[in-house]
Amino acid sequence: MLTPTYLAQQLVNALNLGSLYALVAIGLTMVYGILRLINFAHGDMMTLGAYLALGIIALLALPVELALVLPMLLVAGVGLLVERLAYRPLRGAPEVAMLITSLAISSLIQNGATMTLTAQPRPVRLPSQLAQRIAIGELSLAVMDLVIVALALALMVALGVFVKRTTIGIAMRACSENLRAAQLMGVDVNRVIAIAFAISAGLAGVAGVLWSGKFGLVDPFMGFVPGLKAFVAAVIGGIGSIPGAVLGGYLLGFAEVLFVAFAPPGLSGYRDAFVFALLLIVLLVRPAGLLGQREVNRA
C-alpha cells in the first residue's frame, strides 16, 4: 500500500487541494483584512466561475485558455459590482450588517443558479489536452493537476508582487492596518476596497473553474464546502494575512489528504470533522492564527 508511487500520488493530491484552498482563502483574508467582513458569498464566486467556464466551453466553443481567463475576469467584475451595490452603501454600518448582506448574496446566487440552471449537477468534460495523463515512472499525472498547481502558484506570485511593490498594494496593506489613518493620508479607500473585492472574487472564480475541472461536476452549491474550508484555512493562517492564507490553504490540503490516506478506513468519512478539530487546536495554541497579528486598536 505505502509504495513510493502511492505517496507521490497523495502528494500531488495534497498540492492540488492546497492550491485551491489557498486561492480561495486569499480572497477571504484580503477582504476581511480591510473591512472585517467574513464574506459568506465568497464560495459562490467559485460556483459562478465554474458555470461560466462550462458555458464558455460548451456553448461558445472557445479555446480552453479563455475558459480560465474569462471567468476570472467576469467574476472579478461581479465582485466589483457586488461591492458597489451591496457593501459600499453599508460603509460605517455595524459589521454584522455586512455579514448578513453577504449571506443574502450567497442565497441569491445559489437560488438564482437553481432556478435558471436547475440543481442538477452538470458534468464537466475536460478538453482533451487537460484530460491527458503524463506518466512519470509509475506515477500517472493528469495535465489538469499540473495546471492547477502552476496557475495557482503563478497567481500567488503575481499577487505577492502587486501587494508588495505597487502603490495600490501598499495602500491595501495600510488600509488593512488602519483604515482611518489611510484615509487621512489621502488614500481613496473606496477604490482600494473595490480593487480588493475584484481580486478576491477573480481568484475565487478561477479556483471554481479549476475545482470543477478536477472534480468533474458543477452545481449551484459546489462553492459552499470549499468556501468553508478556505475560511478555516484563512483562520489557521491568521485571518487578514495573505501569506497566512497561503500557508493555511496548503496545510489544510495536506492535512486532509494525509488524513484520508492514512486514517483507518472507517474514519476517513470524518475528514471535515478532522479539519475543524485541526482549526481548534491551532487556535488554542495561537489564537491569532499562525501568521496573524494580534488586533491592534483600529481607532
Binding site: I170, A171, E177, N178, A181, L184, M185, G186, V187, A299
Partner: peptide, 25 residues
C-alpha cells in the same frame, strides 16, 4: 494634511512605504 493623535503610523509598513503611501495621489 493631518498628523493624527497617537501617531498612527503604519507599523507593518517600512518607513519608506509609509512616506510613499502619503504621496499616493
Amino acid at each position: 494634511a493631518h498628523c493624527p493623535e497617537g501617531r498612527q503610523i503604519f507599523t507593518r509598513l517600512s518607513v519608506m512605504e509609509n512616506l510613499r503611501l502619503a504621496a499616493i495621489h
